[in-house]
Simulated assay, not measured.
Amino acid sequence: MKNRLLFFLCLVVCIGCKNSTKRNDGKLNIVTTTTMITDLVKNIGRDSVSLQGLMGSGVDPHLYKASEGDVSKLTGADVVFYSGLHLEGKLVDVFEKMGRYSNTIALAEVLDKGSLIGSEYFASNFDPHIWFNIEYWKQITNYLTEELGKMDPDNASFYEDNKEQYLKKLDALEEEVRQTIATLPEEKRVLVTAHDAFNYFGKEYGFEVVGLQGLSTATEAGVQDVQNLAQLIIDKQVKAIFVESSVPKRTIEALQQAVKSQGYDVQIGGTLYSDALGSSGTEEGTYIGMFRYNVNTIVEALK
């Protein structure tokens, strides 16, 4: 507790001492949390911003804890963009402290709460995996662009132009996704994954989505959860189940064995990107590439 208090005191003092709005080279110094947000800032800010992402490929934001190096990045930032809705569970206290003295922006706050998926099992009462709804991601793109323009009016038109280009790419992605999913019969649209990260995806594209763990990977699946889901897979003749890149695969492997023990063979259809993008420099290391990869993997495995 003492160490935690010292952490916050140091954080607040550092932030209070900070009074610059740009780096010496004239670029906004931006820190982001998840890989999805980092990729979005890259598309909108490009070379006109200095960007540091805290989380890398395969990192689970639900469990992520700030290191000493992260504290230095956060306190030196002109703005911190994070997802919100308690996705970054272990960082919530940090952002709440920072919010009183610095520019921290929870991007999900722009979304209409009435349209979000609620949950009695998650602290925020809303499913935080909003990036799996492309329309939500467009709203967040608009919001982030607006905020960048306010902080850096000299480059506001540059950000706007980049936004318009990116929104066109998201429109094309949406059309492609719907065409791909249309090739999968509706009765086969049952998506079983490690945790409940795909509910927005399921709601938008007509999938029944079942996660072995809850909305947060901090929760653990019990024996009864595994048995119940195994029975559902058998009853619905689900062909494949999926591992997630940011969740240990042992939970899905245990589910697969539980199904096999009852005489039904279910395959592991591949690894989906849920709470983080793929490796930097790859197609899956971008939001658009990740979404396309997930959809193709799901559809091919369930056919």
Score class of each variant (00 low, 15 high):
Leu40Asn: 10
Asn19Asp: 02
Arg23Asn: 06
Ile37Asn: 01
Thr32Ala: 04
Gly16Trp: 00
Cys17Ala: 11
Thr38Arg: 05
Arg46His: 11
Ser48Asp: 05
Leu40Arg: 04
Val41Arg: 14
Asn19Phe: 06
Val41His: 15
Ile44Asp: 14
Val49Thr: 15
Thr21His: 13
Asp25Leu: 03
Lys27Thr: 09
Asn43Glu: 01
Ile30Glu: 04
Asp39Gly: 00
Lys42His: 14
Thr33Lys: 09
Ile37Cys: 06
Ile15Met: 00
Val13Tyr: 10
Cys14Glu: 06
Ile44Leu: 10
Ile44Phe: 11
Thr33Asp: 05
Gly45His: 11
Asn43Phe: 08
Asn29Arg: 07
Asn43Val: 00
Asn29Trp: 00
Cys10Leu: 11
Cys17Lys: 03
Ser48Val: 00
Leu11Trp: 02
Thr32Glu: 04
Thr32His: 01
Ile15Tyr: 02
Asp39Ile: 09
Ile37Tyr: 02
Thr35Met: 03
Asn19Ser: 14
Ser50Thr: 07
Leu11Val: 00
Asp39Leu: 05
Leu40Asp: 11
Ile44Pro: 13
Thr35Val: 04
Thr33Gln: 05
Val13Ser: 08
Ser48Gln: 11
Asp47Leu: 10
Arg46Ala: 12
Val49His: 15
Asn19Tyr: 09
Ile15Asn: 00
Leu40Met: 14
Thr38Phe: 09
Thr21Trp: 03
Leu9Cys: 06
Asp25Met: 09
Leu9Asn: 10
Gly26Cys: 12
Ile44Arg: 14
Val12Glu: 15
Leu9Glu: 06
Thr32Tyr: 04
Ile37Ser: 05
Leu51Val: 11
Gly26Gln: 14
Ile15Thr: 04
Val12Lys: 12
Val12Cys: 07
Ser20Pro: 08
Ser50Asp: 14
Val41Thr: 15
Lys42Ser: 14
Met36Gln: 12
Arg23Trp: 00
Val49Arg: 14
Asp39Trp: 03
Gly26Tyr: 15
